[in-house]
């Protein structure tokens, strides 16, 4: 059943970038400076593009499975209906018809945009993780995942540069910006631990050679984050407790609203081409 593992692993990767991209997309037209509005939209577009590649791959995997295997895959009634009716699954079915408990994104990406410092902090923590993840994924035995990682890596290099520069700029800007940046780093830090805690799916994916051992990335991550935080003249955030759950489908209350908004047309007018 390695194809099921590959499918679920691919969906987890896709969910992360889609929800992150969706969050940033909501800021379009509302940035503090026109140039930064455009920069944020670029990042969002990259992430939605990555999500599309991943969901398309996931859809191919589903469509190549036997009817019996497919029937076991999803809780979502509309997806099940499609499978029962022997219809092909598309990228959009996977993004638009699964519910919050089906989504496997980490909690960090679904957190609210907040002010500019919160938006920056979330991207700073997430993009750095993505950079290390995709770098490790270049060695995946699954050639599609490796190829997606390679293509995405070029984009993420720009994302980490953008976020790191803003952490430094706000940290070393005014007293107000310094305080806000420090607060935002502190508030979002508790969602970073989850990214490095292997869930069962990730262990399996790692064992069969397609996935990454994320626990091995944590030390490098900490060091790289710390380097930037220091350069910004800020304190490394601390957390007595790291929140987890998203990767196992147990989300914060935000995700339900994100999906309600994102999926509404597909649900109000089901089975139509747009």
């Amino acid at each position: 059943m390695s194809s099921v593992t590959t499918l679920k692993y691919t969906l987890q990767l896709a969910d992360n970038v889609l929800i992150m991209g969706q969050r940033l997309a909501a800021l379009c037209g509302k940035g503090p400076i026109l140039e930064q509005d455009i920069a944020l939209t670029n990042i969002s577009l990259d992430q939605i593009g990555q999500a599309r590649s991943l969901y398309q791959y996931a859809a191919t995997i589903v469509n190549n499975m036997s009817v019996a295997d497919k029937a076991q895959l999803f809780n979502a009634p509309l997806l099940q209906e499609k499978i029962n009716n022997k219809l092909s699954i598309t990228e959009d079915d996977l993004a638009y018809l699964r519910d919050a408990w089906d989504y496997r994104n980490c909690l960090l990406v679904e957190q609210e945009n907040g002010d500019w410092a919160y938006t920056v902090a979330r991207s700073f923590f997430f993009d750095r993780f993505q950079y290390l993840l995709y770098t490790a994924m270049l060695k995946s035995t699954d050639s599609t995942l490796a190829a997606i990682a390679e293509k995405s890596l070029k984009e993420v290099q720009y994302h980490i540069k953008w976020a790191s520069e803003w952490v430094i700029r706000l940290g070393d800007g005014t007293d107000i910006s310094k305080e806000k940046m420090q607060q935002a780093l502190q508030a979002r830090w508790e969602y970073t631990g989850e990214m490095f805690t292997m869930n069962e799916l990730e262990k399996e994916a790692y064992n069969i050679g397609i996935g990454v051992d994320v626990s091995q990335l944590q030390q490098t991550y900490q060091q790289q984050i710390e380097t930037i935080v220091q350069e910004a003249g800020l304190q490394m955030p601390t957390a007595a407790w790291m929140q987890t759950g998203g990767k196992n489908g147990v989300h914060t209350e935000h995700l339900g609203y994100i999906l309600a908004e994102m999926q509404y047309l597909q649900r109000a007018y089901p089975n139509m081409e747009w």
Partner: peptide, 22 residues
């Protein structure tokens, strides 16, 4: 943008609105 009915439409609309900013 956040309610676009497909991922392709979302990406195209986002790119379009970004162009307006440009």
């Amino acid at each position: 943008i956040t309610r676009a009915p497909s991922l392709r439409r979302k990406a195209v609309l986002l790119a379009k609105v970004q162009d307006e900013g440009g």
